[in-house]
Design a protein around this nucleic acid. Structure first.
Lengths: 213, 213
DNA sequence: CCAAAATGAGTGATTACTCACTTACTTTGG
DNA sequence: CCAAAGTAAGTGAGTAATCACTCATTTTGG
């Protein structure tokens, strides 16, 4: 529970302030999440934001840039949160707890932004592709790669059995991400955070299994 | 291993035969998987299929219908596979093994179709929405709901601890689905089936945890 | 010889984006 | 103190390209 040092940064996406730029971002975000980037017209964004269509191009180079900027905000936010977990030194269980809790917190905090990330990340290959999965020693640039790095370190330290960290990271993330996707698709209501203890137990369970495999 | 009674039905999506209808379906499928329904023009489908644009409308009412028919094929296929697992009576572990193995098999068998399902199911609310999550006693019409039904029965029978079958089903599915998504996004290569034993162990591990919770 | 298959030019609607212009402030100079 | 000049914000009609879809016509195969 002692993670007061980590603050959830909300950068890139303006909160709901009065500026027209923020209005455009929130309007675009909701429409992109709902209909996908290619399913939304600049006209509809301007209408929803209550501004003229031309104004979009004062703040953003084009529609695609606007869409990418929004995606980058949540993508980086999630990635850095997992990196923050990896830098903690209270053990793997603590790191898992940290990630699960903050992941749900970030999702609940701006559900539209999170929904956009879950549903439409694949629209941006540069953020999600093999480019982002480079196994080099550099900084991980996706939640998945950050998790891989964390688990690789745990394997190195002998905390969990050695194995394919890439697959194991995906399995562990899936325990939280699939319920999130299910909620996005309407399978249940209420905050994701309500299920944090269940998710934590599930992730730890998946990680421990490698001991006997 | 004794599931010879279950045959993987490939219905709806023509295999690669010589007919122009099949050519159109395969061309559209690949483009839809790659760029999303709204990111693909009828012109590009016709070009890739090597037929005229007008021919699309002899076989399909419109672009959206074509896209939905393809999605329905894989969606129903996965749902019925899980229902087939639920009707087996050799115990939960056997059912899990059946689902994991056949899920990976279906994915590997037509990776483009599976990729389309993973990335773009949300484009069809009628297939993925709360409508498909109706908790009534009718037939489940999504993989998620079929899994919920299976786990509810297991809870009823006392095989696993009672709990929120909706969330638990999502967690269990996530152990397989998230690696699948990771592969779709390029995190690793090779067939999904290569990891079946690991997935099986992971799913069982997640399900057993409820015993002590 | 004809019905079904296939074509591709054509339709009106919609697209992302531009640009000449207005409006609302702020800064400057006497 | 205040008019003039300058600047950034905002507008919306306009543009060329593309969109999904239609249909009169031609090709094909039995």
């Amino acid at each position: 529970m002692s993670d007061a040092s980590y603050v959830n940064p909300l950068r890139g996406v303006s909160a709901v302030d009065g500026t027209n730029k923020a209005k455009i971002e929130r309007a675009a975000l909701w429409l992109f999440a709902e209909h996908g980037v290619d399913g939304v017209s600049t006209k509809s964004i301007a209408q929803r934001a209550g501004v003229s269509e031309g104004l979009l191009y004062r703040y953003f180079k084009n529609k695609e840039t606007l869409a990418r900027e929004l995606m980058r905000a949540i993508h980086i936010r999630l990635t850095e949160m997992i990196m923050a977990a990896a830098s903690r030194e209270a053990g793997l269980a603590d790191q898992v707890s940290f990630i699960v809790r903050h992941y749900c917190e970030i999702a609940d905090d701006d559900w539209t932004l999170f929904r956009y990330h879950i549903l439409h990340l694949h629209h941006f290959p540069s953020l999600s592709d093999a480019a982002g999965h480079s196994s080099g020693g550099g900084w991980p640039n996706s939640p998945h790669m950050a998790a891989v790095k964390l688990l690789s370190a745990a394997m190195e330290a002998g905390v969990i059995a050695r194995g394919d960290a890439n697959i194991l990271a995906a399995m562990a993330l899936g325990v939280v991400l699939q319920p999130a996707q299910a909620k996005v698709l309407g399978a249940f209501d209420g905050p994701l955070s309500a299920h944090v203890p269940l998710f934590e137990a599930g992730v730890l369970s998946v990680l421990n299994l490698t001991k006997e495999a």
